[in-house]
Amino acid sequence: MTDTDSNAVNYPLLAAPQVQLAGPVDDRMYTSFKQQVAAAYGDGPLVVAITTLGGDPEMARAMADDIRLIRDYTGRETLFLGKVAVYSAGATFMSGFPAEKRWLTRGSRLMLHERQMTSTINLSGPLNTLRYALEAKLAEIEDSIRIQDEGFRALVAGSSVTFDELKQKASSAWYIEAVEARDRGLVLDII
Rank of each mutant, 00 (worst) to 15 (best):
M1R: 12
S6P: 01
L14H: 09
Q18R: 04
Q20K: 11
D26E: 09
R28G: 07
M29C: 09
F33Q: 09
Q36R: 05
Y41T: 06
D43Q: 06
L46W: 08
L46E: 07
V47Y: 05
A49S: 14
I50N: 01
I50W: 12
T51C: 02
G54Q: 11
G55Y: 08
D56T: 07
D56V: 09
E58K: 12
A60Y: 01
R61K: 12
G75C: 09
G75I: 14
T78N: 02
G82H: 08
S88I: 14
A91F: 08
T92G: 04
S95F: 12
P98F: 05
K101V: 04
W103C: 03
L104R: 02
T105Q: 10
L110M: 07
L110V: 02
M111G: 02
R115M: 10
T118S: 09
T118Y: 04
T120C: 01
N122T: 15
G125I: 11
P126A: 14
L127A: 13
L127F: 10
N128F: 05
E140S: 06
I141Y: 14
E142F: 05
E142Y: 03
S144P: 00
Q148N: 03
E150W: 06
E150Y: 10
A154F: 10
V156F: 02
Q168V: 14
K169L: 14
S172W: 07
A173V: 14
A173H: 09
I176V: 15
I176F: 06
D183C: 05
V187G: 01
D189F: 03
I191N: 02
I191A: 08
I191V: 15
